[in-house]
Design a protein around this nucleic acid. Structure first.
Lengths: 252, 252
DNA sequence: AGAAGTTCTTGTCACCACGACCATAACTGT
DNA sequence: ACAGTTATGGTCGTGGTGACAAGAACTTCT
């Protein structure tokens, strides 16, 4: 760690310690994804203050010196939207380009979480409104986002996409009990692909411990059909456990 | 983004803008991994100044307001160790626990890169020394690291391990031309597994574009044996291109 | 030189996961 | 009762993979 000796920009504190250092504001921003109507949705707040007043943004705010980044993310999310997701938040990137905030030097740490149910959404005091938007509208540019939040959202979706591919943790999207059709809809929504329902069932059934049948059945949907079986998540994908093992040999 | 209104900690600038905000120092830290003698090694610098003077640490330092995080990481790495790896640095985490630096509030953004050849290592002015250490010594606690750098190193290795698993980008470790045995040694070193050389060859050969035979052969090793074929990296794993596609169906 | 040892390379075989697709079961509304 | 819809189970062929055997090419030892 090297001490930077340069002429301080206006506002940098003096005599804070033996060292001079450039001062930054540190913020956290949170991307909340959820499934509504078989579509991937994104939680946004409408900014009430300049800059970018009136535009949509992902919830977030300043980190306090007394809290961790994880705590700051959970706190800001709840303050601005009323949504609680502390244990599900995953840090996935930091953004610190010099011009990303027109006011000052801001470095932000971004979090993402996928929720089966966001619960009640309540806009905070500084936000004009808070609600879900389809991610397709956002990434297609039909909803203009403040700051570099579009880039952050894109990165978040990329992260979720590959996470799903590797660990297979899709149960985070659905409820505590779910049908295979619901689970399949998650995969199809996240990376726009059609999966064969029969093969999907088989691939989960062969891998022991992914989903556990409850024995109960859900009522048929509006269009009828055989009542689907209800499952709950197995312990195979509790928290970052490796699923696919690399190919290996035994001897030598 | 919400404006935090609280009594400023000592040293927070006043009148910088309409808003008050907590001031942080932002640093970047870089984990450099390389293979030496079929062993995974880690680039460390010995701290010349308090705190943690004399202890080993991963290279890093303060971000400047005029540069991006990526630029800061590349600059600090070269300043402290003489190693250049700008295009290979990958951001993988941010650390901001309140007590992680005893002097002040510091949030650090961590980068990792895997190099086939670190080149000449030259300790910077503030570092007493800079050299490679076997990662096994570090994670086993035989080399004491400053700050929370042990945690950062552990996370970096985890990241590389899974990256290798998903994208298969192992050519970053080896030279521009390499034998399959060298490439296989990378996999075996990163996640401690024995791979069958015949199957390893086949899995690379069937996947078009991973490795390209040069037609030339390397000289035999010290123990003799048939001279191995020389390969160079294919374009399949240039920069984050997806390798494994999820299973899908065509119709409906 | 010949033998022995080492490494690289090609080949074979069995198995299993997977995509594609069909058939049947179970339920809805008309 | 009947058509429409969804869930579930089964079959078949293909391809990737682990295990292993055998040959090719080179070095070192005797």
């Amino acid at each position: 760690m090297v001490v930077v000796t340069r002429t301080s920009p206006p506002g940098v504190p003096e005599g804070y310690d033996p060292s001079q250092y450039p001062a930054f504001a540190v913020t956290v921003d949170v991307v909340i994804l959820t499934m509504v109507d078989d579509e991937l949705q994104l939680l946004l707040v409408q900014r009430g203050q300049a800059p970018f007043a009136g535009m949509w943004a992902i919830p977030g705010g300043f980190k306090l010196p007394t809290e961790t980044l994880d705590q700051a993310a959970a706190r800001e999310l709840e303050e601005e939207t009323g949504v609680r997701a502390a244990s599900l938040l995953t840090q996935f990137g930091a953004y610190g380009d010099p011009e990303r905030d027109p006011r000052m030097n801001v470095v932000t740490v971004a979090y993402v979480a996928v929720l089966r149910d966001v619960g009640a959404i309540a806009a905070g005091t500084d936000a004009a409104e808070a609600r879900l938007h389809p991610v397709n509208d956002v990434v297609a540019g039909r909803v203009e986002l403040a700051f570099d939040h579009l880039r952050i959202v894109r990165d978040a979706i990329d992260r979720v996409r590959t996470d799903l591919e590797v660990t297979g943790v899709a149960t985070a999207f659905v409820g505590s009990t779910f049908t295979l059709a619901e689970l399949r809809a998650v995969y199809e929504a996240v990376w726009g692909v059609h999966l064969d329902s029969a093969n999907f069932r088989r691939s989960l059934a062969t891998n022991e411990g992914w989903v556990i049948p409850t024995g109960r059945r859900a009522p048929s949907g509006a269009a009828g059909g055989k009542p689907p079986e209800l499952f709950r998540a197995g312990r195979a994908w509790q928290h970052g456990g490796p699923i696919r093992r690399p190919s290996s040999t035994k001897r030598k």
